[in-house]
Amino acid sequence: MPGNEEAGNETVSSLGHSSPTTQLSTLGVLKSALGCIRRDPVLAVPFAVVGMLVALVDWLRQHDSVPAVPTDALGQSVSVTYSVFPQGTTRTVRHVGALVDLETRYLLWAVGLEVLVPLAVGIAGWVTITRVLDTHSGPRALSRYIALAAVVSIPKLLGGFSVDIPGFLFGLLLLAVALFVLTRLFLLPALLVTGSSFVTALRQSYHRARGQGMTIAGLIVLIGLAYWGLATVPVAGGFLSTAVVAPIHAVAIGTVFSTGSGETPSIPADHIASRDTRSDESQ
């Protein structure tokens, strides 16, 4: 609703952009995302289905004869398991080392499981973001989205990514750099969904995140904590992390994207305030 200053909403203008931009607070985006899902529950369906698949694959990994290990993050006191592309945290992971020298039928089985999950997660993310943006994109956009989503999950298959942190200050610096990079990549999925090429999507994501860094950083931390927290629930963790958090993540991407581009097709008006609107009101 124009002029309605919801909790933490504020409006800024991005330098160098002729069009006005609107900025939401972290909580504003999350409320907006939840509101979207409440009004359009179909948005939650793709990841609910994928959540069941993730839980099933977790169970299969634990019961077949190919080695699998618990996800590293589940053994931590607290962890932020954020991914650029909306996806829950699985309770198990199968490293690529376990696939070396497998008999053919076991290799096909194991590779099939590892391909199935990113594929399903990619499709669910694409469908959800497409719906929240109320846009139409073709199979090329879908394939680009899935391909990139699969690529970013490869380090997990190789055993995860970690570096030795020699000191607290260096650790903080590293954390800040990682958060900055993830912030600038936050809108990448939405840009791929709308048909941008890899390079264009990367460039646009970097530019569009300007001025919304704190909001997006807050989203990354909260969403990452939620992915991890729900994944720690015994047995159902993979399902909960995927079915509950991933749709919120996907819709939040759509919300921030629409807000930044001045489009608000699926966003409740009472969560957005534009500078122009307020200017109008003040006149």
Binding site: G97, I154, L158, G159, G160, F161, V163, D164
Partner: peptide, 15 residues
């Protein structure tokens, strides 16, 4: 649990 170094090497292996 794989050591930090080994996991890092695992990632490096990708490239």
């Amino acid at each position: 649990m794989p050591s930090t170094r080994r996991r890092f090497l695992g990632l490096a292996a990708l490239g």
